[in-house]
């Protein structure tokens, strides 16, 4: 790597007393006193959430109300602080969704551990877990801050789906083999 030697301009006597610099600093701070505040006064004013914001992780349903998570446990695996705990389960026959075969029996996210890294959202092959806009989370007990499956779906709501992968699969299975 090339080294570029830089020589500093020698300071003049006045500059070396630092008095002009201090005075200009004083001028800056004094002028700053009369400018409007930059503060967002939080509880009354809320910040605008930019797109791609990583809030509380939630589980979502597709527009048909189908629970998208199939409990593949990849998020549990990738989660750096081990905040996610899933108990996988089988979709019972006759539920209309048995072609998905697998769904979480329990899905807990410990928000005391979550670091909002978004790896769960990134790794999810079913686009079922999203870090959405909720950023304000508080509770009185540790138990309150463990989001269970129903709470996660309540927070997550419904997001649009561009694939309807499982519905297509079911349609293909009902149509039967091509031969």
């Amino acid at each position: 790597m090339a080294v570029i030697p830089l020589t500093r301009k020698p300071l003049s006597l006045v500059e070396r007393t630092y008095v002009p610099a201090i005075l200009s600093g004083l001028k800056t701070t004094f002028k700053r006193m009369f400018r409007p505040n930059d503060t967002l006064e939080y509880p009354e004013q809320r910040p605008a959430i930019p797109p791609g914001y990583r809030g509380v992780p939630t589980l979502v349903k597709d527009p048909n109300g189908r629970e998208k998570c199939v409990s593949c446990q990849l998020c549990e695996f990738v989660c750096p602080p081990k905040a996610i705990r899933i108990t996988p389960g089988t979709v019972p026959e006759g539920s209309g969704r048995e072609h998905v075969e697998k769904a979480p029996q329990a899905f807990d996210i410990d928000m005391l551990r979550c670091i909002y890294c978004g790896l769960c959202q990134e790794v999810c092959p079913e686009e079922a877990i999203f870090l959405q806009n909720q950023y304000s989370l508080s509770g009185y007990t540790r138990e309150e801050l463990v989001n269970h499956k129903d709470r996660l779906y309540e927070l997550g709501g419904t997001l649009p789906d561009s694939h309807y992968k499982w519905d297509k699969k079911k349609a293909a299975a009902e149509a039967g083999p091509a031969h």
Binding site: S71, C72, Q73, E76, F77, P88, G89, T90, E101, K102
Partner: peptide, 9 residues
């Protein structure tokens, strides 16, 4: 063992 646990755990 079906759907009980992923093997990587």
């Amino acid at each position: 063992f079906r759907f009980k646990m992923r093997v990587w755990f």
